[in-house]
Every structure is written in C-alpha cells, then in structure tokens.
Design a protein around this nucleic acid. Structure first.
Lengths: 234, 234
DNA sequence: ACATAATGTGAAAAATACTTGAAATTTCGT
DNA sequence: ACGAAATTTCAAGTATTTTTCACATTATGT
C-alpha cells in the first residue's frame, strides 16, 4: 500500500491522567489534528528528540517532573506553540509558565470547545505552521491543497480533476515507484472495472505537457520506469 | 517452493491471555506485520535469543514473571521498540515500564485502531527499521525496493524489468540453489507456456555483465551450479 | 577427447509506452 | 432543459525498448 503524506498539525500531548487523555485524543483527532500522547517527562523529551511536532499541550504535574521542565526544553530547541493544562490548584504558578515561553494555559476541567478554540487561536499566531500544511511542492511545482490550485514557478496552471488527482498521488509519494496498476486502481477503480489502459498514458502525457516547458526526457518530473510504472523525481 | 525473505516488520507478542491473542494475531497479520506469539517469560527470552525481532508487545503479568523483566533483557541486548499491554489495574506501575526503556503502553481492553496507530507511531521513531525493509543488499549490490533501483557500490545501474525480477529472486534466496526450472516458472509462467530455455541463459549473462565489473568466475555474484541451476553467493 | 551443459551474439519479434485526433460523456451557464 | 464547452475515454498509428531465439562458441566433467 502507498503511504500518504500527512498534512495535519501534529500535537504532542503530555498528560498522565487517563480519563483526560481518552476524551482528548478523540477530540483532537475529530478536529483534524494528528496527536501523540505521552505520559511522562522522560518520554516527552524522548519523543520531541525523535519527531517534529507543531504544537504542545503540557500537563504541569507529571510523575517524573513538571511540564515547566519540558517547556524550557522545547523553547531551547525550537519555537513552537505551547499550551499548559493545569489543575485549578496550580493556577497560581501559571504565570511562571507563561514567563518561560508558553503561549496559553487552560485549567481542568475544561470544555472541549474552549480547548479547541484556544488551540486554533494560538496557531493563528504561528501562521507558518498552518500554511506549511496546505502546500505540497516538488521542484518548481507547488500545489495549494486548500484551494486545489497548482502552480508552476508561482504561475497558476489549470489541471482537470483527474489530472489533479494523479499529480497528488505522485506528490504524496515522491521518489517511489508507482505502478500503472496502482494508479488505475486508486484513480479509476469502480468495482474492478478499470478504464482502458491507454487512458492512463494519455493522462501522463497531458500532465507532463502542463507541468514542464522543457519536454526532454530527463527534465520530466514524472519519469517512466519501463515495464514497471512511473516515479516522481524529487 | 522457494522460501521468501519477508520484508515485513517482525513483532514478538508476549501475552498469555488466549482471547486477546486470537484477535491480535489476526489484526497484526492483516496490517502487514509478521508476528510470533509466545505465552511466558521463559519462552519469550528463548525466542529473542534465537531470532531477530523488530519490535515487542509485552503483557506485564505473565505466569512465570513480568513483562518488565523481559523489557530489561531486551534493552540489554538490543535497541528495539517495546510497547506494554497492561490491565487497567497495573496502570500505576507503568511509569516504571517507561523508565526502563519502553516506548509506549496500552491498556486492555484496547481498540484495534489505537494499537495499530501506536505501533506505527513508535516505529516512526525508529526509522532504521522500516527503511531496512525497503533495502535488500548483497556484497556491493543494493536494491531499493521502493524506487525499484539497483546500485553497484552506490552507483546506479539500470536493469530491465525482467532482469530486476530475476535479481530479486536471487536476493530473496541467498545461498540457495535455484534451478532453471524454478526461475522459468516464477518469471515466465503463463499457463505452462515456458519460454525458450536459452532465454534464461541470456538473462543471466546480462545480469552478470551489469552486476560485476570483474568477470572472472569466482567473482560472480550469481554462481552456476552445473547441471542444477544457479545460486547467489552471500 | 568427448559429450554435454552453459554462454555469447545479433537480428527479428514482441511488448510497452507515447502521440494524436476524434468520439463519448460530463459539466455548467443560461 | 438545452446547448456549448470542457473533460474523459478510446482507437489507431508511431516510436522505443525489451525480449526472444537460432546459431556459434566456450567451458566442464568423466
């Protein structure tokens, strides 16, 4: 199966209270975020080291330390939004949390809507995060997923909807061989009734035509791998 | 039939609850993992000694010990991801599990989707595991399965699709005699209509030509076993 | 040295991919 | 609902690469 490049905002949640986690994970997923939940300071720092998150929700009290420690660590290595989740009793210290670089805080128990709107509000202050999620690009071709528009060197080019789907399939799997079968299956599969095999060739030809102004073989974004399929060269 | 080198992530599951095992095995297989299930600490350590696993799912409570013991043992001998499966009652100790090197935990009963996404998430933090599944190599020849590209000493060489298929057949069965019949069957079998026997010889010749720069016999990757077939010397 | 098996060669045949134009279908504005 | 425009599909012809095969040559084991 082909992998899919995720274009979601990725949030790391550090929280050790199981009953909060359950609702939280469901909520965030539903709202279109990608989440990773960890339970301790140690684990959190581990995950941060090994992965890239766009944003952090940190509980203050953790079994092996405080969210403040994690916050300081995050601010050392990157500049991404941080929201603290605090018990009401910790409210007094939260000024400290904001001092060391957090963007907001929310006290438990919180209403789901409030959390989500705080998250979105904070994200608005980091426009580069959401913007980067709506654009896929390769070489001089850029796709704005939100507007479903395609640009060649910042000049818009018009693709039909099938051409667009095929292009996305390539952009989501750069440097990966995609067989004709896989494309036919994904784009045309209506209960096994594939389209004429040649149709795909026609689409590839048109896509190339539109994407490239230099139709020498080596300059094609979409390379054919004879006898196997096609591949987008990143 | 020829054995096939699996390019799947291989998971050792240590769990003594039969009703969990049943669903688990089916689920993991369906999601494309290779699984081995064992029921006790003793058995687990035995299997770990004798085989290479990419990842571990450990129940905490076992008839003859705890998953924590197994976790410590694993971390002594290798660095592979570990996820604990715990009953809700053991939740308190789980911080200990994470301390001794586990990557995540999940409490029973769990939803299938949650387990799978935790597994995939943890695997993402060990990129070398999934990457190693996309590369097969032997001596100075490397094959990138994702790109369907072949390299000789990190220099790309171009194979036709049949040459590629045959090479893969050899790489998937190193140090194993493969008869001409087996190759003909696997590569050319279209309802028993085999190709001219000599065709295979031609392909072997071309493959050798492309794979080696030194065409002395001993240096050939693909050795002929007179009267029997061919063998790839690892 | 002999018979047999394996290998090398190049030209013909086949397979695969590309191009083009035109027919069928869908979409969209009126 | 109708017609025009755009999109999608298909068929036929062309170009390119690969696969195949017949025959010549070389290697191997007894």
């Amino acid at each position: 199966m082909l992998s899919k490049v995720e274009n979601k905002v990725k949030i790391l949640v550090v929280e050790d209270n199981k009953s909060i986690i359950e609702g939280l994970e469901y909520l965030l997923k539903k709202e279109g975020f990608e989440t990773q939940i960890v339970y301790s300071k140690k684990q959190a720092i581990d995950y941060i080291k090994n992965d890239n998150y766009d944003m952090f929700l940190l509980d203050v009290e953790l079994p092996d330390g405080t969210g403040f420690d994690i916050c300081k660590y995050i601010k050392e290595v990157t500049n991404k939004p941080i929201i603290f989740i605090t018990a009401r009793t910790e409210e007094a210290n939260i000024v400290y949390g904001l001092d060391i670089g957090a963007d907001d805080y929310i006290t438990k128990p919180f209403r789901n809507n409030e959390l989500i709107s705080r998250i979105r509000c904070v994200l608005r202050r980091y426009p580069e995060i959401t913007e980067s999620k709506n654009i896929i690009s390769c070489k001089n071709i850029k796709v704005d997923l939100k507007k479903a528009k395609v640009y060649k060197d910042s000049e818009e080019i018009c693709l039909t909807s099938l051409e667009y789907k095929i292009l996305l399939m390539f952009l989501n799997n750069p440097n990966t061989l995609i067989t004709r079968g896989e494309i036919l299956e994904k784009i045309w599969d209506i209960d096994g009734n594939f389209v004429n095999d040649n149709t795909l060739s026609v689409y590839i030809k048109r896509l190339r035509e539109k994407l490239s102004d230099n139709n020498s073989k080596e300059h094609q974004l979409i390379q054919t791998v004879r006898g196997m399929g096609y591949m987008l060269k990143k």
